[in-house]
Design a protein around this nucleic acid. Structure first.
Lengths: 226, 226
DNA sequence: AAAATAGTGTCTGTTAGACATTATGGC
DNA sequence: GCCATAATGTCTAACAGACACTATTTT
């Protein structure tokens, strides 16, 4: 297929789906079935279907469902990438979405077209997908310090040690246990379920759940990249 | 012109250009020359011209130049608005940009097609422009507390009282003079020009300029909407 | 010298980080 | 009772906010 210039740019969406597996931040990649870049690993993405999609989150959900068998994820618009060079077919616009899921919201075994790849140490990716992932990780780090966003990586109920480990992975630094719990308690976006963790452990931890989807704080939980 | 559904969405950009005039945050509106909504006040916007524009910031610059006679502004992507209902012509995508300028970067007298309107108390605007402006103001407020962004409203050299007033307008609250200056000094993104303000005043203030375009802080300069 | 605005100093309560200590459940 | 992990308490240094004070220029 030859390079072609469109009178109006082509519009696609891309999904940067992040999850934590074995305490490592990973991104979902999908092997491209079609040109350009057929056979290469890339972000899942696709065209908007005006007849089918009510809005962009729905476009993204449809694509993630088709390519990764996935429901109910945290979804937020990341940013829009555009220009004449990012796609060999010509001037294009891609609206990127950031998706966060607990590992077990994905199929236990991914098919061969799909894989989770550590965010640090990615291979060269087609289009501007490398940059998109870098931007997504930066957004997660920045917003993670000031919100309950990292909890999107956890199942519905979780323990404080799990939550703290998740924040530490997101922020890339160790957090003090005492300070962490004080702030969590002050912010008050958790409630006890009354249950305790069933994981085999010396002392089972209490289980909590969120009282609201995402909370933005005014104080930081660490990660002030001084 | 009848309603029509496109096989691919139409792509436009919109510019939310903010400035401060008489200590009030204002947005630049432009009277629409064409349908839909001809004659109504709306954000300046337009189509991407793939043959002419290297990227979206250039599209926005072109539009601002044509509609508001403007050069060299702070530009940052705001977010993308899309869906079947926002434009009566059908499924559309608009990438909105936030532009910040000092008042005197605009023509002293604006033509009749163009006006600066206070951000609070806007009339009903077509498309989703009301929401775009609200989002832009929210972004400015949020980022303003943690960056030198408000300085984009000031000329190249300015005094500390001017800077503080600008932050107060952006954040919507009074700031303590002493704390403000302490933090500014600690952050160190200003340098003295050696000059003093020429404005008629009891005691002329020292003039400063930025040492870098925009700085993101890890501490806040106020505006923690507790 | 009085007025007005610019700029500095001091005090105090709050908060984050470091680290020590206590509690609880499995074996 | 011992071990491992969970949970809480205490001390200290840094910092923001409030407010008083000093400095400099115009009239």
């Amino acid at each position: 297929m030859a390079t072609k210039t469109f009178r109006q740019p082509v519009v696609t969406v891309d999904a940067v789906l992040l999850t934590i597996e074995e305490d490592i931040l990973k991104v979902l990649l999908h092997r491209r079935q079609q040109d350009p870049f057929a056979g290469r690993w890339a972000l899942p993405g696709g065209f908007v279907h005006p007849d089918e999609d009510r809005d962009l989150p729905q476009t993204v959900s449809r694509i993630l469902r088709d390519k990764a068998g996935l429901a109910g994820v945290y979804l937020e618009q990341l940013r829009t990438y555009a220009g004449p060079d990012r796609d060999p077919r010509g001037w294009s616009v891609s609206i990127a979405y950031l998706a966060l899921v607990p590992r077990d919201a994905l199929p236990e075994e991914l098919d061969e077209r799909t894989s989770l790849h550590p965010v640090s140490g990615l291979p060269d990716l087609p289009f501007d997908h490398g940059r998109q992932i870098a931007d997504a990780a930066a957004r997660l780090r920045g917003k993670g310090a000031y919100s309950s966003l990292p909890a999107a990586f956890l199942p519905e109920s979780f323990t404080l040690p799990m939550l703290q480990r998740t924040y530490e992975i997101v922020l890339g630094e160790a957090l003090d246990q005492s300070s962490f719990r004080r702030k969590i308690a002050d912010l008050g976006f958790l409630e006890e379920t009354g249950e305790k963790s069933k994981a085999a452990s010396a002392r089972p931890a209490r289980l909590y759940r969120l009282t609201e989807p995402v909370r933005i704080f005014n104080r930081s939980l660490g990660g002030n990249q001084a």
